[in-house]
Write a protein that binds this DNA or RNA. Structure first.
Length: 314
RNA sequence: GCGCAGGUGGCAGAGCGGUCAAUUGCAUUAGACUGUAAAUCUAACGCCCAUGUGGCUACGGGGGUUCGAAUCCCUCCCUGCGCA
């Protein structure tokens, strides 16, 4: 029989973009506000931790579909607006912050609800991927950025044959990071995990591709009406370079291309919609591998799972 | 009606006598993922047996030249532009 004070509940809500995660997360969090849930689970509420690699940035609101104060319905949200879009925010940083928040929420006898579409961020926080303590080296990256993947791979093979065996030999970005680590530590440490000690309910929202595409297109038009282009213009005026916008991807990448006159308005909307769909698919390939995920089709179904979870853990 | 240009795989668009089931881009499908992850990268992509230096059907329709044609010739159909 488990004692209440050893129960460390953690709810994760994942799914592709436009599947309705944020809204569900608020609904789930609010379940823990009921007297019944508080009594049964001994929790005094829930707080949401975003796991979204773009919503961490200040000023990127419309393009990322960041939840509004009103939509939060009083549920505290964390790890939104914590970074400067001019600078790169990394998974390792996210991991530290997310774990800190989770620990704090538990300490306050509440339930953390991790919600987001960035699979790597969720895994980093929950499973505790141990990232080698080697900070990005801009000079090195710039230098290696000019080298072909083939050459990078042969460097790595010499420097760290073990890592060379597991790495994608055609992906320059990965090769450069591996070399960066090898440069500093001699070799890339083997992958290890340091998972959170928690009772996890991992929910995934599933939508059929056609329905998802429909939602994506509707949402895109809404964003455009709500001033997405103006937001991008403003970010640029505030010093976010076009190059940086390109790295930020999707709305920012194609919006920047449109604003620079590189593509027509029509091409902008069409490619962007398509790219978002492809992104949604990439998210799904990532999540599909995680067998902890309980897939649900509707919010009602999700709520049922959460209620079950509350019962069995109390 | 005359002149010119052109009709190629889901689309765009190369190829202009053999090495072409046909470059490439887009789209599509599947996948990878150790500090940029909305990023980055890979593979498949006519049909069939699915073992291969395999079989079949393909480059608007039909006919012809040739050992051999998406590529040359004739003819028909269609499209765009120019002149009527």
């Amino acid at each position: 029989m488990e004692r209440k004070d050893t129960v460390r509940p953690l709810i994760i809500i994942a799914g592709p973009t436009a599947s309705g995660k944020s809204e569900l997360a608020v609904e789930v969090a609010r379940l823990f506000n009921s007297a019944r849930a508080q009594k049964r689970f001994g929790a005094e509420g829930a707080e949401i931790i975003s796991a979204d690699s773009r919503q961490v940035y200040k000023g990127m609101n419309i393009g990322t579909g960041k939840i509004t104060k009103r939509e939060m319905k009083g549920v505290p949200h964390h790890l939104l607006d914590i970074a400067d879009p001019k600078r790169i925010f990394t998974v390792a940083h996210y991991q530290k912050l997310a774990r800190k928040e989770i620990a704090r929420i538990w300490k306050e006898n509440k339930v953390p609800v991790v919600c987001g579409g960035t699979g790597l961020y969720i895994r980093a926080a929950v499973d505790g991927i141990v990232f080698p303590e080697v900070r990005p080296d801009r000079a090195l990256r710039a230098r290696l950025g000019k080298v072909s993947a083939q050459e990078l791979f042969s460097y790595l093979k010499k420097k760290d044959p073990a890592r060379a065996k597991t790495i994608d030999p055609k992906n320059p970005r990965r090769l450069i990071r591996a070399l960066e680590i090898a440069e500093a530590l001699g070799k890339v440490p083997e992958l290890s995990l340091c998972p959170l000690d928690a009772d996890i309910l991992f929910l995934g929202i599933r939508k059929d591709p056609q329905e998802l595409e429909r939602r994506i297109r509707i949402r895109l038009h809404k964003r455009l009406r709500h001033g997405m282009i103006e937001e991008i213009t403003r970010l640029h005026e505030e010093g976010v370079s076009w190059k940086r916008m390109d790295d930020l991807g999707l709305e920012y990448r194609y919006g920047a291309q449109f604003l620079q006159g590189k593509i027509t308005r029509e091409a902008f909307e069409e490619t962007l919609a398509k790219e978002i769909c492809r992104y949604a698919k990439r998210q799904m390939t990532w999540f599909k591998r995680d067998f902890r995920i309980i897939w649900v089709n509707t919010n009602t179904e999700a709520i049922q799972k959460v209620e079950q979870f509350i019962k069995t853990k109390s």
